[in-house]
């Protein structure tokens, strides 16, 4: 049987090759977080934190603007790294916790707002917000995809999307320290859209580069 022979040859060949590079999930997460933090640091150095930071931090909405994305980011990166191993099947529902809290906050604002709600939702800096979050996410996301090529996700699109959400949310939480638009209607919509865009990019990159 000739096929049997070639399989034995293949095994001999594979055994002679050096073991491939190891996959370090914590190093991957650390690398991405450092790159994202570096980008935000440069952004703050150029454009600064919001001037009224100390006073504004008293408000729940201002805290939520940073804390909810940060929470989303931590959950998403944890899920992404777990899904990066073949046997790692994940349940995505923990992501719903910060998302539900954000939606509840926006809904509550929608009910109690007294001015024109559409103007409040549109704000004045929506495009700057979208552009900043997506651009600052590009490099850490690309790095994350490269680092995860050593891993073995059996659902590459899902893993890529989670990676994108993790990076987008991390950057959004940092960008919030610069942004002075404090209405939940504004930040839930636009931060949410930016995180969604980065997540979609991650899904696409996962489809392209995380299959093996």
């Amino acid at each position: 049987m000739t096929t049997r022979q070639t399989t034995d040859d293949l095994i001999r060949d594979l055994a002679a090759r050096p073991a491939p590079a190891r996959f370090h999930p914590t190093a991957a997460a650390g690398g991405m977080a450092s790159l994202a933090a570096l980008g935000l640091g440069l952004f703050f150095a150029g454009l600064g934190l919001r001037a009224d930071m100390a006073g504004a931090w008293q408000h729940l909405a201002v805290q939520a603007k940073t804390v909810l994305p940060a929470l989303l980011s931590v959950i998403a990166i944890w899920l992404a790294l777990r899904s990066a191993r073949p046997e790692g099947h994940i349940k995505a529902w923990p992501l719903a916790v910060p998302i539900a809290a954000a939606l509840a906050l926006a809904l509550q604002r929608l009910v109690v707002a007294d001015g024109p709600r559409l103007a409040e939702l549109m704000g004045n800096t929506a495009m700057a917000c979208l552009a900043s979050i997506t651009l600052l996410s590009a490099l850490p996301l690309a790095a994350g995809i490269v680092l995860l090529r050593r891993a073995a996700p059996t659902r590459p699109v899902q893993t890529g999307a989670l990676l994108g959400i993790a990076v987008g949310a991390f950057v959004a939480g940092g960008y919030a320290l610069h942004c002075t638009e404090d209405s939940p209607l504004f930040f839930v919509s636009w931060y949410g859209m930016a995180i969604g865009l980065v997540g979609a990019s991650g899904a696409y990159l996962g489809h392209r580069f995380l299959r093996w």
């Binding site: 095994i11 594979l14 073991a19 491939p20 996959f23 191993r85 046997e87 050593r150 073995a152």
Partner: peptide, 27 residues
């Protein structure tokens, strides 16, 4: 077999090997 070689480092030593192997094979 080639995939087992390329991805063998994604097996965690403290985890059982069977679920890892089956998931990889299935994929």
């Amino acid at each position: 077999l080639l995939a087992i070689h390329l991805k063998r480092q994604t097996w965690r030593r403290d985890a059982p090997v069977r679920p890892w192997l089956y998931a990889l094979t299935r994929y």
